[in-house]
Design a protein around this nucleic acid. Structure first.
Lengths: 231, 231
DNA sequence: CGGTCCCTTGAGCCACTTCAACTCACGTGG
DNA sequence: CCACGTGAGTTGAAGTGGCTCAAGGGACCG
């Protein structure tokens, strides 16, 4: 990780576009931006590690960060994919405690970082931000609970369709993910996800290239309950 | 549901014991208690319903509330069991939005209720409370994500042991739950949980009576990673 | 004394995981 | 430039955990 040259305007622009900061005044965002530092990560670089205490709040400026967790047997699930404007650690800054998650760059990525105490102090002074944070945490909880329900009574095909549908909404019809990465979002094995992908391809719903998926028939992905997940 | 006669002392006592309010001054708790109302629910009565907007913050005073969610196929998972001092809706008061959860009384229960706006106003004035709330939401997220991981690479036996272990820590060795209720915590069918319970019984780890489970060998429940869930 | 809820057990099935083997694409370093 | 290694994709075959369906017994309640 290396530090980027400072650029206040860039940070303010980012904050004003981010859903997390919706409802805050420009003045407030400017104050916050002054506290922020830019950091650069290359693909696959670790942003933070499991069991590492939290000392900064981080928002993606550009790129993509994957936040995931490992099981005892070494399996991994991804529970958050944060793109520009999205925070990768909302809990840590408040508790300061270490957590079980690993964050790594899915692409070359630039991150905006604010020292923990600075961020919480700012947050406590802006109730709207607190509300936004709690709202986002609510979505995270709902999404995880949805995934549990899905694992109870949906087949892998349907779960994968739901994941693709969610990714489509967020990133458009061309997705740069490997089947292994998808499997971690679906909660299955690489082989299974590969097999299902082959089915979808034969049905003309998607096309695949190495490390890339193109969705041809978005309408075939939305199930009866077209609720999307939240990554 | 009927309203209970008011009792300020009772409410203050409850708040001062609750983990949620840890770190707040007695004066603050007294102010908050003045805003609170007691409500009584009989077993199986609904406290709130799915898709119902949130207009009050609620803490269990006495009894037990089960918060759960239904799948499209009518299956149910329980994701929270709230006993005395525990809140049943931390998100709703801040967003006001309707959510997908159902809360019902697992026993006859008394609840302390505070009008939404009163509660959020109080919360914004007390950073420590905000921190506590976010901390609890973090545990909820971690717990849900643990359950997802467990469903990937643990057998029903192990998941059920973990659930029993968690319940043991929270409620002691005598648990008043049916196997169907257990199944909803484990994420499996009633039949499977019943079968596993039979195994544990044959191994002398538990004893069962109608609607009641007694844990005889707690040490047999803690797996290699004795991490408990969070209900 | 009928109804309802809880418990129990059996048998069958099937979606997934697991293990394994092989191809293809890509980049790197000799 | 070729050789090699690694990571992605592909496919087959085998095994199985636990879900489903089914059927019955026992406890508690009105």
């Amino acid at each position: 990780m290396i530090k980027e040259p400072e650029n206040l305007e860039k940070k303010i622009a980012l904050f004003s576009r981010a859903a997390l900061f919706k409802g805050l005044s420009m003045d407030a965002l400017k104050d916050l931006a002054k506290l922020a530092v830019l950091k650069q990560y290359v693909k696959n670089e670790l942003v933070f590690q499991s069991d590492e205490p939290c000392d900064a709040f981080e928002v993606v400026e550009d790129g993509l960060i994957r936040v995931s967790r490992y099981s005892a047997l070494g399996k991994r699930i991804t529970y958050l994919l944060a793109g520009p404007g999205e925070p990768i650690n909302l809990i840590g800054p408040f508790t300061g405690a270490a957590r079980e998650y690993v964050a790594e760059a899915a692409q070359d990525t630039i991150i905006v970082s604010i020292v923990r105490k600075d961020f919480t102090q700012f947050a406590f002074a802006h109730p709207q931000l607190i509300t936004n944070i709690i709202d986002i945490l609510g979505h995270a909880i709902d999404s995880s609970n949805s995934r549990i329900l899905d694992m109870l009574d949906k087949k892998v095909v349907d779960r994968l369709k739901r994941v693709l549908h969610t990714l489509l909404k967020k990133y458009g019809p061309i997705l740069c993910f490997t089947s292994a990465e998808l499997a971690e979002l679906v909660g299955t094995t690489t082989e299974s996800s590969l097999r299902v992908m082959a089915d979808l391809r034969h049905n003309g719903i998607i096309e695949t290239r190495r490390g890339q998926i193109e969705i041809l028939k978005p309408e075939a992905l939305a199930g009866p309950d077209s609720e999307t997940l939240w990554f």
